[in-house]
Design a protein around this nucleic acid. Sequence first.
DNA 1: GCGACAG
DNA 2: ATCTTGTCGC
Length: 229
Amino acid sequence: MTGSDAWSGRAPRTVAEAVAVQDELRSLVDLVGPGPTAPATVAGLDVAYAESGDRLAAAVTVLDAATLAVVDEAVSVGRPAFPYVPGLFAFRELPALRDALDRLTVRPDLLVCDGHGLAHPRRFGLACHLGVVTGLPAIGVGKTPLVGEWEEPGLRRGAWTPLRDGGAEVGRVVRTRDGVKPVFVSVGHRISLDNAVDRVLALTPRYRLPETTRTADQLCRAALAATPA
DNA sequence: GCGACAG
DNA sequence: ATCTTGTCGC
């Protein structure tokens, strides 16, 4: 087995174990990038839960970066792998997301994750974790903040302000649509923050959230509904 | 001690 | 995340 599989496949069962895994994998994050400026394909990942909370569906959709048309997709239905704990969110969805990623027929050039990357208390959010275990460039796009302070960005699409935590810029608060609530963009793996923001803007020609996230969201919801308990 | 807290 | 009704606007 490869060195990476040795611990990335480890499933922590306690908060202490999960934090230890993050502290160990954090050093593997590539913060240099700069990542693809013109990726051919971009993948979106999302997970939907049954109201009972004991079942979930993870989906990955791969879009042609130029046309934003879906060129491949995969889903995985299963159980949450960990309880929801802020800061340890990745352990909950990672197994199912990796399973879905393994079912793709094409390897995307970039991952757009539904959650934060470096904008995390230990600088290792879901986007970093997914980037490290797949080796792919990854971006984190959160709908609400987890850490940091920021000023409200301008009202026009494209406006942004730095998201700072502990003195460092851990991400950016980006207005993807005129007058609409901004999203929180942060680096996951193998990409620069500048490029990450550009990539997110390229994926939001019409809605607040990236097309990748939207298509993945629709797919996992449909998969969950089509798979009765 | 109290509040905050990705999805 | 999910539950929720109507409502304002393009």
